[in-house]
């Protein structure tokens, strides 16, 4: 089952070949959790400060569905 993943602000260094902010399709098991996805991508949980699924912040227990848009950020702020 594919999910559309974007990682940002240095987290791309965890994934060989990944570029910040560019979409990657990742094949996961149906209902796989956010935590399992991070493990699959070798992103340490403590670096994944914001985990968004379809534009909504979720905790890492969230079960992912086919085609979900996932975005992972370290802590950021500005204005």
């Amino acid at each position: 089952m594919p999910v559309e993943v974007r990682v940002f602000c240095g987290l791309e260094s965890c994934i060989p070949g990944a570029r910040s902010g560019e979409p990657m399709w990742v094949d996961i098991k149906a209902g796989e959790s956010g935590r399992a996805l991070l493990a699959r991508l070798n992103i340490p949980e403590e670096k994944a400060f914001s985990f968004l699924v379809n534009g909504v912040r979720r905790d890492l227990t969230v079960g992912l569905a086919d085609g979900d848009r996932v975005a992972v950020f370290p802590a950021v702020g500005g204005g």
Partner: peptide, 19 residues
């Protein structure tokens, strides 16, 4: 970390992802 590295425009992507 984030502000020195990327500046205020670090917000662009997270505000976009948040819709």
């Amino acid at each position: 970390q984030a502000l020195p590295a990327y500046g205020t425009n670090v917000l662009m992507n997270i505000i976009n992802e948040a819709g």
